[in-house]
Design a protein around this nucleic acid. Structure first.
Lengths: 235, 235
DNA sequence: ACCTGAACACCGTTCAAGT
DNA sequence: ACCTGAACACCGTTCAAGT
């Protein structure tokens, strides 16, 4: 579509090596992510795919972490992050919005793990933050609680995806999962009376059920828990 | 204690290379963690420290992830994870207990990042789970909410430490932090009206203030949010 | 059963040198 | 300014062979 601005003067048959751009690097990274997973998105592999050396990439991205942040923002571009605050049920909308975000992250759990220590600041991420704030404010949540609550909600989404991810990805981590489940099941009633008493509730419910409950618990806690020097929203 | 079964017949002056044990490996790993950080705790470095080859370690640990899990459990051994359910204020105790856990993780944020995708199952970790359950039950929290809530609380602790960690560790991530703060500050009122309206509240408060509020919000949400097929605690 | 040397198949990032 | 080859300083894990 947009590669036609310059007639390729290929000496040989070379397929017209495109100029390096940040957008092109990110796009290629996402292609590899989709087809082979994040662990294959290395600077070396990326450079190879773009027909250059790894050092060349450092003109456009500071390091791997920054690349991951750019990839997330690009993935968010495809998600629907706009909301309608005029609509009736802000809570239901908030659940839907956060679920959208979780869905993106669930698709690439290793990226979620990386994002947890990233503080993304791309335009689509800001859109998400703004929409979350819009809904909390529409629900009458006090200013400071809303500001802090957004952090809590985003952290929950990323952590949930990161947790889910590792286990779903590899077969070995299945064993670890079983190890915890087994440990909880076989716990000695003398040593761990409360684990034994709570029993199967610890691992009950499906993923979506627990996710939904988690979001609702978070919203309720955010709305109802007083913060230092709370102020009402300036209308 | 249990290394005495065989008199060492050292041919030379060699400082009596101790036999490999899982506990010894974990202890050495923690020493390196304390003095040089998790990124230096590699199988190769660990083997070198123990005067052997990396392959030898795989007799005692399945892989690096499992090693990290064992390290966490060992670090928890030093924390006070027992609680007194007879005491009056279960909420205050819960805050103190979770803060203890966070404090351990804050000291080694890179370990926290690793733990997020781990499902630890060591005895000290189970103690922590049991104590959290004890307090929630003491507070009259319904069975299923308590079971699911423990997950939420532990995830929050680990994610908070992991987030904090990366930023505190390196100077570059300071830039990233500033990048987000700057992006929020400079956000266009037209594009992101709610970010602009919320303004400084998004980044207000000290770390401990936000942590304390987060735990309280979580407890409130867990206690008050109905779960599917809730059942009261069987007394 | 436990231990090992050596190899396999990779990494991120920097830097001096080119264009 | 942009791009690069080559190097620096590493990784986790496996496996055949030894004791």
């Amino acid at each position: 579509m947009n590669t036609s601005s310059q007639r390729p003067v290929s000496r040989r048959e070379r397929p017209a090596k495109p100029a390096l751009t940040r957008a092109g690097i990110v796009a290629t990274a996402i292609t590899i992510l989709r087809t082979e997973g994040l662990e294959k998105v290395t600077m070396r592999r990326l450079a190879q795919e773009l027909d250059t050396g790894p050092a060349s990439l450092y003109v456009y991205v500071r390091n791997v972490a920054e690349l991951h942040g750019a990839m997330l923002d690009e993935l968010l571009a495809a998600a629907d992050l706009r909301v309608d605050t005029a609509s009736s049920d802000w809570q239901q909308q908030l659940i839907a919005l956060l679920s959208s975000y979780v869905r993106v992250l669930f698709a690439y759990p290793s990226l979620a793990r990386s994002v947890l220590s990233l503080r993304p600041a791309g335009p689509h991420y800001l859109r998400l933050v703004d929409s979350l704030l819009a809904l909390l404010r529409a629900g009458g949540v006090l200013q400071r609680r809303a500001g802090w609550g957004v952090d809590l909600l985003l952290q929950f989404a990323v952590a949930t995806a990161a947790e889910h991810g590792t286990r779903a990805e590899s077969a070995e981590t299945r064993d670890e999962d079983d190890a915890l489940a087994a440990a909880l099941r076989d716990a000695s009633a003398e040593e761990y009376p409360n684990i034994v008493a709570t029993g199967p509730e610890l691992v009950s419910g499906t993923g979506p059920e627990r996710l939904d409950w988690g979001i609702r618990a978070l919203i309720r806690g955010i709305a109802d828990t007083p913060a230092l020097d709370d102020r009402a929203v300036a209308e």
